[in-house]
């Protein structure tokens, strides 16, 4: 109860192909995150799953049943919107119960579900308030509560944290993770923030320009990116890409090294370079080093490192942790 299959889904707006054939299977109870840069089609894909948008071709199956032309309300799904989309004229309680009333759920049952959801999301003190009287984080919890009371097979989240400030974002992220653990429901979550993707997902789907670049568990994507795009998108600061020719590497076109897999030394090392800029974050230090051989590299050092712009350093990559990509950007074994 709660599996999803997307079968060759394509979507064009006029002549623009937004989705160029998406195949994907989501298992019951999985937390799947669609991640990708803006315009990659991730929101469109979510809206097609929700039934708010038509696919140009292809099918959507929920629990094995084809729902391609089923109205959104009958798909057994619930959605949490980026702007919360609460009904401004209704109280929190009515916001949560409206959909249930519409399908004629008995009042006692509605009451039970609303109470359960509001307890779970600590919304009890606000049940009789209207959305305008709530803070951004509270509104987002109401939006989640509205989804929870419907007891859907599938939860859809469309960038739910992007309108919250940084501190609230971390909290709400945690709440969503706990919610998933408690409800054990299938959840599909769209974001452009790879940190959200890494922290929440059982499975990440990386989308780019209307195609799936890679599907996998967060650490798989980090450790074994299928291509240059995924390698660059997952991980922060971004992976360094070095022209293989400069390093005299034969087969590969590009060599990738993550900033945290580079070490520095003042005396000796693989590549000699000059520090261009240093960012001291306390827990770690980011150095931007212009090397003679490999060009500009970002180096991430854990802890405090006393290097200032202009000083000379040697940078050495961890040989176990370098990635090779061919001319098409594909990862080489």
């Amino acid at each position: 109860m709660g599996s999803l299959t997307i079968d060759k889904v394509k979507k064009s707006f006029g002549r623009v192909d937004v989705l160029k054939g998406i195949d994907l299977a989501v298992n019951d109870g999985e937390f799947v995150v669609f991640v990708g840069p803006s315009g990659c089609g991730k929101s469109t894909l979510l809206r097609i799953i929700a039934g708010l948008e038509d696919s140009t071709s292809g099918r959507v199956l929920i629990d094995g049943a084809d729902v391609t032309v089923t109205p959104p309300a009958n798909r057994g799904i619930a959605m949490v919107f980026q702007t919360y989309a609460l009904y401004p004229h209704l109280t929190v309680r009515s916001n949560m119960s409206l959909g249930l009333k519409q399908i004629g759920t008995p009042a006692a049952e509605i009451d039970r579900r609303v109470t359960a959801a509001s307890t779970m999301l600590s919304l009890e003190p606000y049940l009789e308030r209207r959305p305008a009287e709530l803070s951004g984080g509270q509104r987002q919890r109401v939006a989640i509560g509205r989804a929870v009371v419907r007891e859907p097979k599938l939860f859809l989240f469309d960038e739910p944290l992007s309108n919250l400030d940084a501190a609230l974002r971390v909290n709400t992220r945690l709440e969503i993770a706990q919610l998933h653990r408690r409800l054990k429901a299938t959840m599909i979550y769209v974001t452009h923030d790879q940190v959200e993707a890494m922290t929440l997902a059982d499975k990440i789907v990386v989308l780019n320009a209307g195609r799936i670049e890679q599907v996998g568990a967060p650490m798989d994507l980090y450790n074994k990116p299928a291509n240059e795009f995924v390698a660059g998108f997952i991980g922060s600061p971004r992976m360094n890409f070095i022209d293989a020719a400069k390093l005299g590497e034969g087969q590969a076109k590009t060599i990738g090294v993550r900033p945290e897999h580079l070490t520095v030394d003042t005396g000796s090392g693989a590549w000699k370079g000059t520090v261009v800029h240093a960012e001291h974050l306390g827990a770690d230090t980011n150095l931007y080093v212009e090397t003679e051989k490999a060009g500009l590299l970002t180096v991430r050092i854990f802890g405090v490192y006393g290097a200032e712009a202009g000083s000379t350093l040697y940078v050495t990559p961890d040989p176990q942790r370098t990635y090779r990509f061919d001319a098409d950007g594909k990862a080489l074994a």
């Binding site: 039934g51 708010l52 948008e53 038509d54 729902v67 391609t68 032309v69 089923t70 109205p71 959104p72």
Partner: peptide
């Protein structure tokens, strides 16, 4: 609006 939400 999509096929799923529109009616002829």
């Amino acid at each position: 609006m999509s096929r799923a939400t529109a009616s002829l």
